[in-house]
Simulated assay, not measured.
Amino acid sequence: MATRAYLVGALMFLIAAAAGPVLPDWVVSLATIAFANALVVLGLVVMWRAGLVSFGQALYYCVGAYTVALFARWTGFTDAIALVLLGGIAAGIVAVLVGFLLARYREIFFAMLSLALSMILYGVLVKTESLGSTDGFTVATPTILGFAPRGDALGRALYWLTLGVGAVCAVLIGAYFRSVAGALAAPIRDNEIRIEFLGVSASRIVHVKIFVAGVLGGLGGGLAALAIGHVDPNMAYWTTSGGFVFVTVLAGAGSIAAAFIGSLCFEAVRSFAVDAMPSLWQLTLGSALLLTILFLPDGLGSLLTRRRKSGEASS
């Protein structure tokens, strides 16, 4: 089944990549942001499978974005691939450090502490005039492997880069889910004491999950910063984290692909709702979430898992 999932994922990736040259510019831009944010959602899925809900993933998203913007600004180095990797590394370091605190807590305490840490970063950025305070600052125009595309060509290059990073992360997270640490997510969620009796440190596994989610958040933030061309403290604000949690509920934790599909659906619905009903777009998003909870309590990913199970039963 893993091989089949890889083949389906590879097909979806090739279709999305091949469609790049013919998609309208606004669709390319929307999809780039959606797939960048999907990496943050994928990190939330990693933790959600262990019963952990973080309302502070914007912390890593913002760290990745500001790392990309500041490194390009201070050094003049603009290669997009290297900058995104640096964003992921910086966010991973932050995740390791805060993980020593967060890994000790569960449930609402975990959620609120993660939110508090994100808001601390927001407050620091707002008060730092050298970083643009509330206005933030622009990100230098990136290059890719020595090439310097501009305009529409740059947008499509970043779209393909985001697809590539997303595909690599999806493969790695799939391998992680099949590893011992990944397989222990459900036992940690259901009965953590039994895991401890087996001689396995649940806190250490949770710490690893925080790190993985932090790296994914940093990669997503770095890609978003390059695509938007601007960073500001709102990237660390609680509403940004809430949006990621919204998409995670919409997507569900049953499928890696659902994180990308859910993020794309969220961005599409929000864009059309803002355009059609500027004063009521929140109502549209809330209604979409309500309908998902009522009719698909396990998220969009449950549709994929149901189809897979029905295929196994028929065979």
Results as ranks from 00 to 15, higher is better:
51 G>A: 05
285 L>E: 09
72 A>Y: 11
68 V>E: 09
70 L>R: 14
219 L>M: 01
8 V>P: 02
262 G>A: 12
173 I>E: 07
181 A>E: 12
244 F>M: 07
223 L>Q: 09
285 L>Y: 06
236 A>Q: 10
237 Y>S: 05
248 T>P: 03
47 M>L: 12
90 A>T: 14
245 V>W: 08
112 M>N: 11
224 A>R: 08
204 R>T: 01
107 E>Q: 12
71 F>R: 01
290 L>G: 12
216 L>C: 08
56 G>Q: 13
15 I>Y: 00
274 V>A: 01
144 I>M: 08
96 V>W: 10
119 M>L: 15
302 S>N: 01
98 V>F: 14
258 A>L: 10
224 A>N: 08
164 G>T: 09
64 G>F: 12
46 V>Q: 02
225 A>V: 08
220 G>W: 03
217 G>L: 00
48 W>N: 02
314 S>T: 02
219 L>V: 03
82 A>C: 13
261 I>C: 04
244 F>H: 07
217 G>W: 00
183 A>I: 05
97 L>I: 15
155 G>P: 11
154 L>A: 06
186 A>R: 05
138 T>R: 13
14 L>H: 02
5 A>L: 06
123 G>V: 03
171 V>D: 04
261 I>K: 06
202 A>R: 05
296 L>H: 15
205 I>R: 03
41 V>N: 02
54 S>E: 11
201 S>L: 04
151 G>L: 02
59 L>Y: 13
214 G>H: 10
289 L>D: 10
9 G>W: 03
256 I>F: 13
255 S>F: 06
273 A>V: 04
280 L>E: 15
212 V>T: 04
211 F>H: 02
